[in-house]
């Protein structure tokens, strides 16, 4: 049973990393949002599986939160924003997709090396989980760094947060209140960022954050 549970957890966490790489690969806004929803669904599955094997019913709540907020509400909201702003086609990457993918693969390798070495002697399930979670966090950061569009930066941020939740659920005994507060903070971040997107758009007719830099004050 243990081997099987481990394999399934491994499979789900691994798929999350894979979907993170998929996120990096997308060059259309609507596709990006779909993949992000898939990311959140996989997270919900993974957390649910953890709840099952750890016998921790409160993790089901976490899974439900992930499913409802991150797989349905936030992607839905982002879709509306994208439609309203009429930017469902544009994605401007800073460096080429291929280079970004290579960097992403390197980051996954780095996360594996660091985590497997740092957690030597820990529970193998938690080890793998943490290594995958760190990869997802790094990939999320890479996404935020390598995109110019504010919406895709939001998506990068959300996927980064997914990685954090994955890491947290892998560790046994995380209290529910932490989960809920994290979920809320993400929701609030989403709302704030959403409002800001509209404000930016109103002012500058674009959500390219480069436009913000032009009003960043006088340059030394």
């Amino acid at each position: 049973m243990h081997g099987f549970a481990f394999d399934i957890a491994h499979l789900l966490a691994g798929s999350l990393v894979l979907v993170s790489l998929l996120l990096l690969y997308q060059d259309r806004m609507s596709a990006l949002l779909n993949v992000f929803a898939l990311h959140a669904v996989l997270l919900a599955l993974s957390v649910g599986w953890q709840a099952h094997i750890q016998d921790a019913p409160h993790l089901y709540v976490t899974a439900a939160i992930a499913l409802i907020f991150k797989a349905i509400i936030i992607p839905g909201g982002l879709r509306r924003i994208v439609k309203k702003l009429g930017i469902h086609r544009e994605i401007e990457t800073v460096v080429g997709i291929g280079l970004t993918m290579l960097a992403g693969i390197a980051l996954v390798a780095l996360a594996m090396v660091v985590m497997l070495r740092a957690t030597a002697g820990a529970d193998p399930l938690a080890r793998e989980d943490l290594a995958f979670a760190l990869s997802i966090v790094l990939l999320g950061l890479l996404m935020m760094v390598s995109r110019r569009n504010a919406v895709s930066q939001v998506v990068g941020f959300m996927s980064l947060e997914n990685g954090l939740v994955l890491a947290a659920t892998g560790a046994k005994g995380m209290p529910l209140v932490v989960e809920i507060s994290v979920a809320f903070s993400v929701l609030i971040a989403f709302i704030v960022i959403g409002i800001f997107l509209f404000r930016i758009r109103e002012r500058f007719d674009t959500v390219d954050i480069g436009a913000l830099d032009q009003v960043g004050g006088e340059r030394g």
Binding site: I209, L212, D213, G216, G217
Partner: peptide, 9 residues
């Protein structure tokens, strides 16, 4: 002091 947001990130 005067970098873009993306550069800070």
């Amino acid at each position: 002091q005067f970098m873009t947001i993306r550069r800070y990130l």
